[in-house]
Amino acid sequence: MASVYQVTKEEIEAISGVNPLKCMRCGRCTATCPSFDNMEYHPHQFVAMVERGEIEKLVRSASVFKCMSCMACLERCPRQVQPAKLIEAVRLAVIRKQEANHLRPDDLPALVDEDLPQQAIVSAYRKFTK
């Protein structure tokens, strides 16, 4: 099955600015993770999977959306690997699908609603990649 997520290991590394090779497998990220029980893959596994290029597995896992972005793993990491940034990069890769539905300026007037926060509209533009 061809992947709909045309995202490579290099792209994840570029988006996140993380070098997974810096990880020394100490596990402090996983030890501190508050979402551990809800995750299929845990922070240190994220890093190892990106390193091995297993992006497909990651983007298909619900784990990426179980991460609460509390940044505890990033805060405790002794090697500045920053697993939370990797997870955010994978999330971005998922939501910024190529040729997926996204807002065009023409669509805006119909959507403008006084109750809708402006940020929601702005972020809708984000979910797009060329």
């Binding site: 596990g27 996983t30 030890a31 501190t32």
Partner: peptide
């Protein structure tokens, strides 16, 4: 093989709650 994520002093039990990972 793993690490301790956090140590929280527990006022009720007087002990230390240690959260850790076994990798």
């Amino acid at each position: 093989k793993g690490a301790v994520g956090k140590v929280t002093p527990n006022a009720e039990t007087g002990k230390l709650d240690v959260q850790a990972a076994d990798l």
